[in-house]
Amino acid sequence: MKRFPFTAWDAGRRAMPLLSRLKGRGLIIGVPWFWLGLFFLLPFLFVLKISLAEPALAQPPYTDLIEVIGDGLVSISLNFGNYVLLWDDPLYRGALFGSIQIAAVSTLVCLLLGYPMAYAIARAPSHWRLPLLMLVILPFWTSFLIRVYAWIGILKGNGLLNNFLLWTGLIDQPLEILHTPLAVYIGIVYSYLPFVVLPLYATLIRLDLTLLEAAADLGCRPWKQFLLITLPLSLPGVIAGGMLVFIPVVGEFVIPDLLGGPDTLMIGKLMWTEFFSNKDWPLASSLAAVLLVVLIVPFVALRHFEQKAGEEQP
């Protein structure tokens, strides 16, 4: 990512008269802030507000925080009980931990599979790169749901995979894959792999190959060239790709619900239950708020790293 160098930024700010700065720059910076405020902050505040209410049999099914009791008296009642419950109840902690664990393992597997793919594409002859990238992107043209359903057909007891393995004689009993954690991992890794491959490809294709020649020239063998040069320099891509997998997978609902077994406990599923089955919108909202906070930590770390990397490769 090309970043505006901060020094030039500051110099420009000093040089520009205050008024025109407010007009021109303020307007341009204001647009993304406005966007973030309208479509991120505001909805989040709604969620936060609901998380502090109590469920009620009403429309909408939660209490108002602010109530006019009459005589100009206003009562504000904030209910932090949901957050206490989330902390106290091992179910929610377990779900959060389970989600993070599944997301972490999936991210790792995606990176292990996606890195060689991205590397191969970036090093392929230039007329091959576009078709290869298209092959990575092509599955997106089919609905995500249909692709996950297809995995049911592949993994189930008398599905494609088992029938194939039975036919080859490798197994004599169908393997139990569907409705196991393995199926969840297969589904997640399959669905999210392109999100790793694309940013990795973008960093690897930008890598200056003379750096590898320089390393070779200084006596560095190919494998060490990769470890000492390619890998550290592609770290921004690794982190970007990793976050693109990790963050959505923590909240993933569809894949574990369709491919997972009953013991696949993920936070997305719990939120579904709280929202739909229990009509407990406040608790579902506090789950969402906690999840957001948990996810913001790695995201901020990513930004920090990217910024550092951006300075290194001006």
């Binding site: 020649e213 320089a214 020239d217 200084l218 560095c220 550290p232 320099l233």
Partner: peptide
């Protein structure tokens, strides 16, 4: 013979300094 097995060294036009 591969470059990493030669006793010559090279200074690159772009310098090819390792940025990290």
């Amino acid at each position: 013979v591969a470059p990493y097995e030669r006793s010559v060294n090279m200074m690159f036009q772009s310098y090819a300094l390792f940025p990290h």
